[in-house]
């Protein structure tokens, strides 16, 4: 069972989808994934190999760390999509989340103004900031719905090229998502700093 991972130091990190014996789909049933995770945990976990040979203990440690890493990445839709993008050769570096998406230019400008005013001690902008934060969080929810939609579209494509095209769209959505999430994070940071 472990032979595939015996020579782990030479082998690249195994593919997470292969590890779970799952087709390369972006939409995954979380209950099914959890079931597989629990069953494989019972199989691989170091507790099961405590009194076995040193070699078997090492394999079990290796296999269960891969299992846990794979589960952590695949169970969250966003990190799952990022993983698939990366494996498909897309660049998903943080840098891509730093350019302002054109359709958000106005909102971002207003937000930065409000944050500046807050920093200079003007508390009157608080209700406005709150409203802006709310709007951005709403956008995130909408994006998450869009992403799921795109996941299903991706999975329905017949050829690799077609899938690649959808992935490219998903990447754009994820970049937008990351940008907005950073904005919300910035607002939260300012508000906590003010409260502290």
């Amino acid at each position: 069972m472990f032979c595939r991972y015996c020579n782990h130091l030479q082998a690249p990190t195994p593919d997470y989808y292969e590890f779970f014996a799952l087709p390369r789909n972006l939409a995954l049933d979380p209950d099914d994934l959890q079931k597989r995770f629990y069953a494989m945990s019972r199989q691989f976990h170091p507790d099961v190999f405590t009194l076995h040979s040193e070699q078997e203990k090492r394999y079990s440690l290796e296999a269960s760390s891969i299992l846990n890493d794979a589960y952590r990445v695949l169970r969250d839709p966003i990190s799952r999509a990022e993983y698939v993008l990366k494996e498909a050769g897309f660049d998903i570096g943080e840098q891509r989340g730093k350019d302002v998406p054109p359709e958000l230019l106005e909102e971002v400008f207003e937000l930065n103004m409000a944050l500046d005013e807050l920093r200079s001690g003007d508390e009157d902008v608080l209700p406005q900031l709150d409203q802006m934060r709310h709007n951005f969080v709403e956008m995130l929810h909408q994006i998450d719905r869009d992403v799921e939609e795109q996941f299903r579209r991706h999975d329905a494509q017949a050829t690799l090229d077609q899938r690649q095209a959808v992935l490219s769209e998903i990447r754009a959505i994820l970049n937008r998502r990351r940008y907005i999430r950073n904005l919300v994070g910035e607002v939260d940071k300012q508000l906590t700093a003010r409260n502290a």
């Binding site: 760390s65 846990n68 890493d69």
Partner: peptide, 9 residues
Amino acid sequence: NSTIPASAT
């Protein structure tokens, strides 16, 4: 809160 064993490269 990552399940252990856990790894990073």
